[in-house]
Design a binder for these strands. Structure first.
Lengths: 359, 359
DNA sequence: CTGAAAGCGCTAACAA
DNA sequence: TTGTTAGCGCTTTCAG
């Protein structure tokens, strides 16, 4: 009976110990000192205030013993800094964004920041909603790819001077930090390469909505390549796929496109998903790459290098983009009020097996 | 001069207005009511307390006018609920995790939860660090793939009863909610398929660390397939790649493996990255798939279906996994104290062109 | 050298 | 029907 009671007691106190939150006050109470002291010591500000070494040791010892970890929410409220960054991408399952996310996460983590990640699905209203959400959650900064057409909405909901960096896509009329690549030039060079190989009937596959800067610029690159060589552009060789259909793997538009334009000998696709969609369609139609169709695409994904044939593409410096984005965000957070800067990084045109001279 | 002053004043008040945070108190002060009232009204608890409709309208009007949005950090501190979930995966840039993340994010968002995402890079110490971080940030629950060998560390840092769900990998000796697939069975069936096709010299490519449950179970599946058919297992046909080397795209081990075991006619790879590594190596060595080597892998990624040849694989129900994980987490958060349940989902063995009968 | 007290913005008992 | 008050856990003047 006695033992039993003992046992219960022990279990009880154990449970309590496990459950009771260890806070600054609890440590302070334990040690009969003030919260201030504990806070000071634990934040390394004790030496500056020349606080008794012994006291410091006692505090630290007790904190370790109880495994004290400051409540970051309380801290965030008090300091007005959550050490959290919002990352808003179009679609986290897209390898392009997933890989950038990884870099961003690592960089942020190194600097003591966490990431709240969200996907807009290319929806303006969702994007608006999510940005508001991030702001409500008091993130210290936002790194995002916008899907907006006009700058007004963002201007309205994001306070001036709020640490913000746009990457991948910029928004005309919206002055902010930005990091990305020269989409027009990269595309122009790729299309010129196709022209140099003798192709004239070159298709261009892109996505809705067309006002997204990257998509728009890539299309410009296609057009200016023809312009530079003084070749006429055939309008019907430009196909704009519906984003939602692509997501749902409805490739009918592409099949139609190939059937209606059998004279096409080369194709440029505006992103990795389009390239993949195209490869599937081509396979179904029994066309061979590159014999029947040369293909070159924007964005490199792992598999493009080992497929048969390997796919020629324009590779973006993903790690670098993430790196710069985080640096820009932290810069703004720390120094406050920096003129917005734009960083344009180099792309790389990778020649693989999917392109060949016209025969 | 007068105009100038006017201008300055205007700019000043503008700046102030833009800058001044709109809080409960500011609204309350504006309207000469108490914070309580405002809070009640804005949280829809006004009717229950039968508060004057007129007052309610005034509050709501003013709140809209000032575009008031509650500070979620303050709210989180006060309510002890941050409406934030921690998501810890091995590597967010791996399409397998990226796609699950997408579902999880969407589900969470629908329920009013945000996601703090982090990658452990298969490092136990990093994982430990990140879990602690998430806990410090007061997330309401954690959804994670563990990379731990032993349950002790997690047991130590995660409070009992804390809403937690493990997915993909389980941890023996660690009792928690779990959602995943039957890796052993799925692999066994795939390897049996290879055996049925007449292959006997079947390689098995896996990763370090071997104690990760999914990897271990897949290996068991390989072994038990041979066992079931009473065929002997050749130890040297099992190759375990170093995770870091794989990440760094150092495929020498694989090349060696093929050179040393030219008699191998079929290969099972334990995940998508290994399959990709293998495809690259095979290409370099000039081996043809499936003529010289039949390949089947765990995990389906988009490109496996359109490569030439398309790759046979075991597909996991990614969306479903994410869905169940979120449901389990929210269940625990809301109901508190639910017996930990394990959900094992069905995999699908997809036969494509990379496997054929031995000739 | 150390402590008391204020306050970040919010919610919820408890009064009135 | 509305307001007062306390407090979540923390940092930070300002006194002592």
């Amino acid at each position: 009976m006695k033992n039993n009671l003992h046992f219960l007691l022990k279990r009880f106190s154990f449970a309590v110990m496990k459950t009771r939150k260890v806070t600054l006050s609890s440590i302070a109470d334990d040690l009969n000192v003030s919260k201030t002291l504990v806070s000071l010591v634990l934040n390394g500000k004790a030496d500056a205030l020349s606080i008794n070494k012994e006291t410091q040791k006692r505090v630290i010892a007790r904190a370790n013993e109880l495994n004290y970890k400051p409540n970051q929410v309380a801290r965030g409220l008090r300091m007005g800094q959550t050490h959290t960054l919002g990352l808003l991408v179009a679609d986290i399952s897209n390898p392009f964004y997933a890989r950038i996310t990884r870099t961003i996460e690592h960089m942020a983590e190194t600097e003591g920041y966490s990431l709240i990640v969200c996907s807009s699905d290319e929806s303006e209203s969702r994007e608006k909603h999510l940005v508001k959400m991030l702001l409500d959650r008091q993130v210290d900064g936002i790194i995002m790819t916008t899907t907006m057409h006009q700058p007004e909405v963002l201007k309205e909901i994001i306070p001036t001077q709020f640490p913000l960096v746009l990457f991948d896509r910029y928004l005309t009329g919206f002055d902010s930090h930005y990091v990305g690549v020269d989409n027009e030039q990269a595309t122009r060079n790729a299309v010129k390469h196709l022209l140099d190989l003798g192709h004239r009937n070159i298709g261009f596959l892109t996505l809705t909505p067309n006002y997204i800067s990257t998509l728009y610029d890539r299309q410009q690159g296609y057009l200016t390549a023809f312009e530079a060589y003084n070749f006429p552009v055939t309008d019907k060789y430009l196909l704009q796929l519906d984003y939602v259909r692509l997501k749902n793997k409805d490739y009918n538009q592409i099949t139609q496109f190939f059937l209606e334009n059998p004279e096409i000998t080369a194709l440029f696709t505006s992103n990795n998903n389009l390239a993949i969609a195209c490869l599937k369609t081509v396979k179904e139609l029994g066309k061979r790459i590159p014999e029947d169709l040369s293909l070159i695409t924007f964005d490199d994904v792992e598999c493009f290098s080992y497929t048969a044939p390997a796919i020629s593409c324009i590779a973006q410096p993903l790690e670098k983009i993430g790196e710069v984005a985080v640096k820009m965000a932290l810069q703004q957070i720390k120094n406050k009020r920096i003129d917005s800067q734009k960083v344009i990084l180099q792309t790389e045109l990778i020649y693989r097996d999917s392109t060949c001279a016209i025969n």
